[in-house]
Write a protein that binds this DNA or RNA. Structure first.
Lengths: 292, 292
DNA sequence: AAACTGTCTATTGTGGATAAAAGACAAAAT
DNA sequence: ATTTTGTCTTTTATCCACAATAGACAGTTT
């Protein structure tokens, strides 16, 4: 099947939303910038819109003919990139199906299972290996090192070093640095969620990532920022399978965040360190609890 | 050309050395363990040795017929794995040929240049990307972020955090832990090289890696140990192109190491920290000097 | 003059094919 | 009863082909 046209389908769906809001579409380069794709893809989208009688297209004139209907959209399953599909499949496999440490991982079997070529699986595994959960035996299989207690402890040890350092450098940012404005927005969201915690506690996960990423980014160190990818993926999947006391846990974490944010604002190093340590300790406990 | 038989050729060459030392070779599984390859490869080696009239092989009997000659060996160029070749080629390219930050890296062009398929180049770039020197634009090229001063500073910042932490945990190792014995050996090598520094200063680079890896390993943290790969590759190539004052620099580093080793032995945290910091500072200076 | 479109080329993402290498299993040898 | 060998199957490493996507350039429009 060579390359899949998920980029086209996803951009097409997003373009339908744009189309719903105006009577004519802008120029091809402008659309390309807006949707983050090349002109080739834009032109494919416009062609398809013409076919569906959504648009009358003649050079610069791109007149909207009708509102998009639900059936004009490509189904959501078809817009996921192959690497996302492989990632989800793989994570489900190693988290669900009795993934004992030491287990062998077989590229070919994985590929057959997911219904994809070996090349893509292989590239995924190479990319994934930087998370420290799998290891390659050259000319042979991969080994699953497992989502174990040790893994969680090693991960959080580094996380704590990096976040303490980043939090310290955060206080040194100039007052006009955009990070402070972002911090304001994040704080406001915290209050918003806490004010309606029973209905909105599920929004925490995403906000958590946004907040910690902001802190890490202020280190201006690519290794620290890149490391946060590992945290993200681990917590992302962790949130999906540990559902005990989510509401209470999240409420507590939100309070800790607010304390942490106030400490950052105070620019008092000792206070920042205390607040940061307290929050990281409870985050670690939460993670460890979910393991066994 | 499908897969290259570099595993076979390399193992064959190593097997010739074994053959030179005995009158008959051991069993197939035993050879496999010794050379780190499967029986399939061992049997290919034995077959080849028979063809070259080096060996009379009949089941368990593997009688050496003559000593190997230089022409029995496969040439060294043919025993390098493809990924090693790609790595060297790539590093030469980005270090030599005016590698400005922001430059685009083209998989196809790189592959043509090296004379290999695109898949292997792609996989190399994915693996290499964890070193933070390149970055992928999805559906498009890679971008060289460059071996810049910022890169070196970010690298050494993390290195210092990790090494200080590792050095501290080193002092907590039980006296019977094998790391202490390895430390003894490393210390002896330091004295050996310092005693004949004019002739042996080039041995420093390898010893340096061995010493720091030992320290990092004592952290028992996979992320810290894995990070040392980045240091290794950067210093490896760094040593190849910065040749100014090598003798003096290495002599100084050896002295610093000895001081650092003595501090580790003392198990005095403050002393360890001082010695470690001093050495890391001068290592950073050396690296920075070579950049601009 | 600047931005846009038409057209064409080059590169990336992905499946498939194939030689090399690993490894499974039964029969044979110690 | 192990260990070794012969044979066979499976998997990995690598190249190649091709659709999707990006991107370049010249001609056209505002």
């Amino acid at each position: 099947m060579a390359k899949q046209n998920t980029v086209f389908k996803d951009a097409f769906n997003r373009c339908l939303k744009l189309l719903a809001e105006t009577s004519s579409l802008p120029s091809e380069p402008e659309l390309g910038t807006t949707l983050g794709v090349s002109r080739t893809t834009i032109r494919a989208i416009l062609t398809r819109m013409e076919e569906l009688q959504l648009l009358a297209w003649d050079k610069r004139a791109k007149v909207v003919l009708r509102q998009p209907e639900p059936e004009d959209y490509y189904p959501a399953e078809e817009t996921d990139s192959l690497s996302d599909i492989i990632e989800r499949s793989f994570m489900r496999r190693i988290l669900a199906g009795g993934a004992e440490p030491g287990m062998q991982i077989n590229e070919l079997e994985l590929a057959r299972d997911i219904g994809t070529g070996t090349t893509s699986v292989r590239e995924f595994l190479i990319r994934f290996s930087r998370f420290g959960l799998i290891e390659k035996r050259p000319n042979s299989h991969w080994i699953l090192k497992g989502f174990t207690r040790e893994f969680a402890l090693e991960l959080t040890e580094v996380r704590e070093m990096f976040e303490l350092r980043s939090a310290a450098s955060f206080t040194a940012l100039a007052p006009e640095h955009p990070a402070w404005a972002e911090l304001d927005k994040i704080e406001a969201l915290h209050h918003g969620i806490l004010g309606d915690i029973d209905n909105r506690y599920k929004e925490f996960s995403e906000l958590d990532e946004r907040f910690h990423l902001l802190v890490h980014t202020s280190s201006s160190n690519r290794f620290i920022v890149d490391f946060y990818d590992i945290i993200t993926i681990v917590f992302h999947y962790h949130y999906q399978w540990n559902k005990t006391n989510v509401r209470e846990r999240n409420a507590r974490a939100l309070e800790e965040h607010l304390d942490y944010i106030a400490a950052l604002r105070s620019r008092d190093p000792a206070r920042v360190e205390t607040a940061c340590r307290r929050h990281l300790r409870s985050a670690r406990e939460t993670l460890l609890q979910s393991i066994q």
